[in-house]
Simulated scan of single mutants.
Amino acid sequence: MAGMIGPDDLPPVRVAEGSGPVILSFPHVGTRLPGAVAARLNPEGLILRDTDWHLEQLYDGLLPGVTTVTATWSRYAIDLNRDPSGQSLYPGQTTTGLIPLTTFDNVPIWQTGCEPGPAEIATALEQIHRPYHAALAAEIARVRAVHGVAILYDCHSIRSEIPWLFDGVLPDFNIGTNGGESCAPGIEADIARICAAAPGYRSVVNGRFRGGWTTRHYGRPEQGIHAVQMELAQASHLQAETPPFALCPEKAARLRETLGGILTMLAALAPRLARS
């Protein structure tokens, strides 16, 4: 599956306002590319291998009243879950940058000599990164004003075997709370409990993925804003972790039972968090 071009005036974010306390963010599901980016990516880059494939479909309809904030542009245009300053989320560990130069396998995605420079990074920050996060921040403020609390659940997925990033096979559920700092302890504990009880799945809390910039930036439990990143291993829901990255209906149906349980728990927990 290749990336689709523009149009360049495509809004960088789609928002669906819900009436409940839970917000789902999808920063890496976009498959659109600005024309100037598509023209300079190499054949590997145009595959968009590191997209969070089919996450919108995987979470669709699991929780009534949920708000969704969804990226339209590919993470190869700019990564919405990276610090806009360019600072690494995992100092000393291998990772990709604000505008990736390689895939997660360390394979170049740009044609030689066509890599983005500082001016293009600044433009992408202004036209894509900042508008997405302005929309997300506005929804967090709106939801918190209504419910006294907002629970941000940041939806991600990644291939389960990527030697350049981590050793071995990734667990199915990778729960990130920045070491417990981005949400109330009960949220982390209850998500971990649900995942651990799901038969046939493996899970970890604050393992290789502890939560990206979104989780760390917005998670302020003392202010009533709780943020969690869920990184799903794509083997849990794809036919194969290779093109065309097709969704497996049987795997997805089984996984949705656990994901629905997590979201239902979060919504039920919100009134107690608002009173605390």
Score class of each variant (00 low, 15 high):
residue 163 P to E: 01
residue 43 P to R: 08
residue 214 T to E: 02
residue 128 I to D: 06
residue 222 E to R: 09
residue 149 V to C: 08
residue 83 D to N: 15
residue 168 G to L: 10
residue 81 N to G: 09
residue 154 D to F: 10
residue 225 I to C: 03
residue 147 H to D: 02
residue 113 G to Y: 06
residue 140 I to N: 03
residue 15 V to T: 07
residue 100 P to Y: 03
residue 29 V to D: 12
residue 253 A to I: 08
residue 157 S to Q: 11
residue 26 F to T: 11
residue 127 Q to L: 14
residue 27 P to Q: 13
residue 271 P to G: 00
residue 191 I to K: 02
residue 36 A to I: 08
residue 262 I to Y: 04
residue 190 D to Q: 13
residue 135 A to V: 01
residue 140 I to G: 07
residue 160 S to M: 00
residue 201 Y to A: 14
residue 104 F to M: 12
residue 229 Q to M: 13
residue 70 T to C: 12
residue 170 L to N: 00
residue 83 D to M: 02
residue 65 G to H: 05
residue 68 T to C: 09
residue 116 P to G: 04
residue 98 L to S: 08
residue 207 G to W: 02
residue 193 R to P: 07
residue 83 D to W: 06
residue 252 A to T: 14
residue 82 R to I: 11
residue 17 E to V: 14
residue 165 L to K: 08
residue 215 T to Y: 01
residue 17 E to K: 14
residue 265 M to D: 07
residue 224 G to L: 06
residue 1 M to S: 14
residue 112 T to C: 02
residue 262 I to K: 03
residue 126 E to T: 13
residue 213 W to F: 14
residue 144 R to G: 07
residue 228 V to A: 05
residue 143 V to E: 06
residue 172 D to T: 15
residue 119 A to W: 01
residue 200 G to C: 10
residue 195 C to P: 05
residue 211 G to Y: 00
residue 262 I to V: 15
residue 166 F to E: 01
residue 65 G to A: 06
residue 175 I to A: 01
residue 207 G to H: 03
residue 175 I to C: 06
residue 93 Q to G: 00
residue 92 G to V: 11
residue 196 A to V: 07
residue 64 P to R: 03
residue 114 C to A: 15
residue 19 S to V: 12
residue 222 E to I: 00
residue 274 A to C: 01
residue 212 G to M: 02
residue 42 N to H: 07
residue 254 R to A: 15
residue 75 R to W: 01
residue 96 T to V: 15
residue 66 V to M: 05
residue 130 R to G: 02
residue 4 M to H: 13
residue 142 R to A: 01
residue 101 L to C: 06
residue 45 G to N: 04
residue 48 L to V: 13
residue 148 G to T: 09
residue 274 A to I: 02
residue 80 L to A: 08
residue 105 D to S: 12
residue 150 A to Q: 09
residue 195 C to H: 02
residue 157 S to Y: 11
